[in-house]
């Protein structure tokens, strides 16, 4: 016999299901008056220093169908490389119930250490049994020293993590859950 470790095991995940918005963004689905506003409407105030950018995207399943019932959360540092304080840098983005497009209005994060500027994403929906972690990097940045991107065995998948520049301050980032062009998902 040996001494017990007395550690606990993480609670198992379960799918967020089709009604995740009732709990996480109730005002968005018409349940008004319980919370003044939904959590994570904007990651930073309007006067936050840095380059203000808009990222839009959709999430596609293995058949190429756009998910319309998905919830995306993002977490990032500001333009100076600081996380927080409080909930600064956090956003919650329900996909549009008709088009499936989600939109993030934020500031471009700074590089942290050798890591290129990136935004952490967490994706939940019906059919997703445990939240999916991924990242948004940005077209036009130098990614040659980023520890995560440089160590990917399949370098042809790096582009699935890089948002395409579509305008002066706008980017497009589509996520493919499965199959051709499957987005890199992380276990960090």
């Amino acid at each position: 016999m040996v001494q017990p470790l007395n550690t606990l095991t993480e609670t198992a995940s379960q799918t967020a299901g089709p009604y995740v918005h009732i709990g996480c963004t109730p005002n968005f689905v018409g349940i008004e008056g319980i919370y003044d506003e939904d959590l994570g409407l904007v990651p930073f105030p309007k006067d936050e220093p840095g380059e203000h950018i808009t990222i839009t995207g959709t999430i596609l399943d293995g058949t190429g169908t756009v998910l319309r019932d998905v919830l995306v959360e993002s977490w990032q540092c500001n333009a100076e490389g600081t996380f927080g304080p409080g909930s600064r840098g956090f956003a919650r983005m329900p996909s549009d119930l008709t088009t499936g497009i989600w939109t993030l209005n934020t500031v471009k994060p700074a590089a942290v250490g050798k890591q290129s500027p990136h935004i952490a994403l967490w994706i939940v929906a019906r059919g997703i049994n445990i939240g999916l972690q991924t990242r948004i990097y940005f077209e036009g940045d130098d990614h040659s020293a980023d520890p995560l991107l440089t160590r990917l065995e399949h370098q042809n998948r790096v582009e699935t993590l890089i948002a395409k520049k579509t305008g002066d301050n706008s980017y497009q980032f589509d996520i493919r859950l499965q199959g051709e062009g499957e987005t890199v998902f992380l276990d960090l």
């Binding site: 956090f90 952490a120 059919g127 990242r135 995560l148 998902f185 992380l186 276990d187």
Partner: peptide, 21 residues
């Protein structure tokens, strides 16, 4: 149709995962 087929890419958590709102 909503489950990734390829392996997750594992690594140590970085400040993006070690901090939070």
């Amino acid at each position: 149709a909503r489950s990734p087929k390829l392996a997750l890419i594992s690594g140590s958590a970085t400040p993006s995962e070690q901090t939070g709102p």
